[in-house]
Design a protein around this nucleic acid. Sequence first.
DNA 1: TCGCAAATTGACAACGTTGTCAGCCATGAC
DNA 2: GTCATGGCTGACAACGTTGTCAATTTGCGA
Lengths: 340, 340
Amino acid sequence: MGTATIRDVARQAKVSLKTVSRVINRESSVRDETRERVLRAIEQLDYRPDLSARSLRSAKAYAIGLVYDNPNPYYIIAVQQGALAACREMGFGLQIHPCDSRGPKLAEELRDLVHRSRLAGLVLAPPMSERMALLRELAAYNIPLVRVISAAEDPHDGFPCVFVDDRDAAYAITAYLIQLGHLRIGFLWGGKQHRSSPERYKGYEKALRDYGVPMSDELVLEGDYSFDDGFRGARRLLGLAEPPTAIFGSNDEIAAGVLAAARAAGLHVPYDLSVAGFEDSPFSRHSWPSLTTSRQRTELIAEHAARLLIAQIHGGDVENEGFSPELVVRGSTAPPRPKA
Amino acid sequence: MGTATIRDVARQAKVSLKTVSRVINRESSVRDETRERVLRAIEQLDYRPDLSARSLRSAKAYAIGLVYDNPNPYYIIAVQQGALAACREMGFGLQIHPCDSRGPKLAEELRDLVHRSRLAGLVLAPPMSERMALLRELAAYNIPLVRVISAAEDPHDGFPCVFVDDRDAAYAITAYLIQLGHLRIGFLWGGKQHRSSPERYKGYEKALRDYGVPMSDELVLEGDYSFDDGFRGARRLLGLAEPPTAIFGSNDEIAAGVLAAARAAGLHVPYDLSVAGFEDSPFSRHSWPSLTTSRQRTELIAEHAARLLIAQIHGGDVENEGFSPELVVRGSTAPPRPKA
DNA sequence: TCGCAAATTGACAACGTTGTCAGCCATGAC
DNA sequence: GTCATGGCTGACAACGTTGTCAATTTGCGA
């Protein structure tokens, strides 16, 4: 039993190829009775249209690409799930494309991908989504794209996007720590190549300013979105003459490193030190104590991005949209221990 | 600049379409000088063959599918990376397909996927890879497949596979705990729908028997590959009249739950309780203390599976291959505290 | 009943590639 | 000089689908 083609369906339903095509593509102007017959034939033969032939002929594409370079499995899986949900709903395929965001020929690489695999467009995850030069190159190639980016507001830069207000979320976490009574709050940066890093820092900074908490350069350390940098950073902060009573790590992995460093230093979290993360990864629930963090609806965001891309391809009007993360309070934060 | 087709290349190189095709496909019987000319034209026009047209015409496929239903992001990402590495090397595409392993129409779903997207075959991750009924259905549809499975030895059941010796690895972990001096070792099962679970249990059991350590039913609890079941299971074990001095969780997530339960019970790991996991996920490095576990080269295994599948499609002889995990000793295990 | 527009249907070409097969040319043996 | 050989090349059809456009049918008012 070779797989059935549109030809077999046409023969069985006693109509022309084109009519079957019309039924499949839900074009109007097919008589109900004819449509019924064709649908029955499709059912009987278990026919499915061939995507290759379809996109070859129609010059439309039935798949989109998901481009990322992010070492965080939780994030990636969530993005994939979200994008897939949108794709399945719209009858699209999804082609994943992990890549090196610092590769010199990234634009060409992506163009080849789109061309060879006949992709209708790309969803770009950070940090690719924030490289204006790359975006311009892709636009020059006429590749439709939607970005997932970190921004306090709609960037209005002409490239459609779904944006996440990292700044606001970081503000909320910092404000929460201040309200608990913390006055010396350490901040550990994420990777500089991610726009979310400065955004999160700005939120931290603004909260301190708004609440009149003195800033201190020694409490802010640069680093990467990694456990190791969290560990190292925390060790340095805890070694200060006047160490912080709370540390805000720019993501959960950093915060995990902070937890480890605190334990290594014999400190009891949250009583000797409060720790906050960012992301609400499963780790933040499974660590001990579980982490106060900021929940990003990554899956929803990615789904929305994919939906936006498909709408754009279909020629619809595309409205950027913002998502605000939400504070999640767990066991790793508490009021500071009163000074002896 | 519309993307170049084989036609443009032919014109530029002043040869026929077919000759260009020959050059692209590395067929012999093209004069060196002609080949040069064609290659130059390809270079100049930046031509890339269109995969849709190619697979449409040649009835060969240039992509494979990766089928999984596994809630563990670390595992999935590793599998994806491995499969992608093989695909890129061989000029194949990869289509990911997360699905519900208990879905009633899974075989039909996968057949449609293969058919619609013209996939050359499927790599099946656990637990799909262990459902004989599913395998037989797919075979009846003539879908080439390679499985990643848990087995102590080549299953010789006619379905090609890459197998991982979970039993042996669990034996190694248990033996290590026994050598440290533990005589009461708790065991927390993973999900029954995964064949790796009984395999790991068998390794545990065999080690106890070989070393003459008495078995005890109360030390063995069923559950799922989850943090919560690890937490609950550990709480029950620690509440026994004679609690275990070590607990072996069937994966790192379970072990993470055990760590949390131990901490909640005021126990100090590893001095009051040794904990071992399985998988060497990043969590096992980042927890405190870091976990003794078993390293599976998931990425390599998946890469090998994809390579095997592609070789099979090309008609090559296919040899199953086994991978042995490796014991990784970290801070969560120590000799038991001497009885007071 | 006829005429005409609208609704419905079908014939055919085309998308970009590769398989088939035939043709050309140089070579070397007779 | 003829003929077979083998290396190289090209013309053409075909893969399964949809776009174009023309043909046919239907519905309906006159």
